[in-house]
């Protein structure tokens, strides 16, 4: 039996090697590079000077805060929207339910680059909905392109399918008998929701929040095309350091800060929602 167990763990080896060689090692090289001097800053490495530089300039602090704010707002908007949708979808069954889930998978598979093209058209000059109102002089031009709001709208649209699918899976795992039990004990639909459904769905709400925050904070395409140079986030800042100012060490430090920010957010979200999850 121990032999069979050994074989089982041997089967895990390729995936662990893949992670170590293609993710762990590159990340280690990148973080080591972030501690080195460069064309802009001269110091004797390894030292944290690049991080100190990014954290002491108000311009870069703005970028960090913007990344955090956009991801947080996206999460706070998406989770309630997605939760209601998942509650409604849960009641669908058979063909309709199947189609509804496929409809959510499809934008994920089409990819954010194709979707963002649509947003560039829809947000420019008010697009097809607000555009006629602007032309008629009824409202001022919304100027969503190049604004933080525009980026957040597209981020919510991009992450919503992930949130709904995660919450839907979680809600479906709650046994329907529990609702009947709550009802037979005299619980109304609101108190049944508050005392049965909501507490049991918190683990999936937690994973949905982590997924949504991570996707939003690490998104590149939406801030690049819809935010532009005036609305840099950490991902677009990394790209600027590489492609415009050719500073690999500062790019590595900005990427390190992004990883740190996401790690802190995951811990924060887990602590905030985890408190309410009964073991």
């Amino acid at each position: 039996m121990t032999g069979a167990r050994g074989v089982q763990w041997l089967l895990l080896l390729p995936s662990l090697l893949l992670l170590a060689l293609l993710l762990g090692l590159p990340l280690a090289a990148m973080l080591a590079n972030s501690l080195q001097p460069n064309v802009l800053l001269s110091f004797t490495g390894p030292a944290l000077d690049n991080y100190g530089y990014l954290l002491s300039r108000s311009y870069y602090l703005q970028v960090i805060l913007r990344t955090l704010r956009m991801a947080a707002v996206t999460t706070l908007v998406t989770i309630p929207l997605g939760y209601i949708a998942a509650m409604l979808l849960r009641r669908l069954s058979g063909r309709a339910g199947n189609l509804a889930i496929m409809g959510l998978t499809f934008p994920i598979l089409a990819g954010p680059l194709t979707v963002v093209l649509g947003w560039m058209a829809l947000l420019a000059n008010g697009g097809p909905f607000l555009g006629p109102l602007v032309a008629a002089g009824l409202i001022g031009p919304p100027n969503l392109l190049g604004s933080e709001t525009g980026v957040v709208i597209s981020l919510v649209q991009f992450v919503l399918p992930f949130a709904v699918l995660t919450l839907y899976t979680g809600l479906r795992q709650i046994q329907p008998q529990l609702h009947e039990a709550a009802r037979s004990l005299g619980a109304g639909s609101l108190s049944g929701f508050l005392h049965v459904t909501l507490p049991l769905s918190l683990p999936s709400a937690l994973s949905a929040s982590i997924i949504v925050f991570s996707l939003a904070a690490s998104s590149f395409i939406s801030p690049h095309y819809l935010g532009g140079a005036g609305q840099l986030t950490l991902t677009t800042l990394v790209t600027q350091f590489i492609m415009a100012t050719f500073n690999a060490e500062l790019a590595a430090a900005a990427a390190g800060l992004l990883l740190l920010l996401m790690l802190a957010a995951v811990i924060g979200i887990t602590a905030a929602i985890g408190r309410f999850i009964r073991p």
Partner: peptide, 13 residues
């Protein structure tokens, strides 16, 4: 959980 831009950068570096 690792941003794709960061994966790309890390392999480059």
């Amino acid at each position: 959980l690792v941003p794709q831009v960061v994966i790309s950068l890390a392999i480059l570096q």
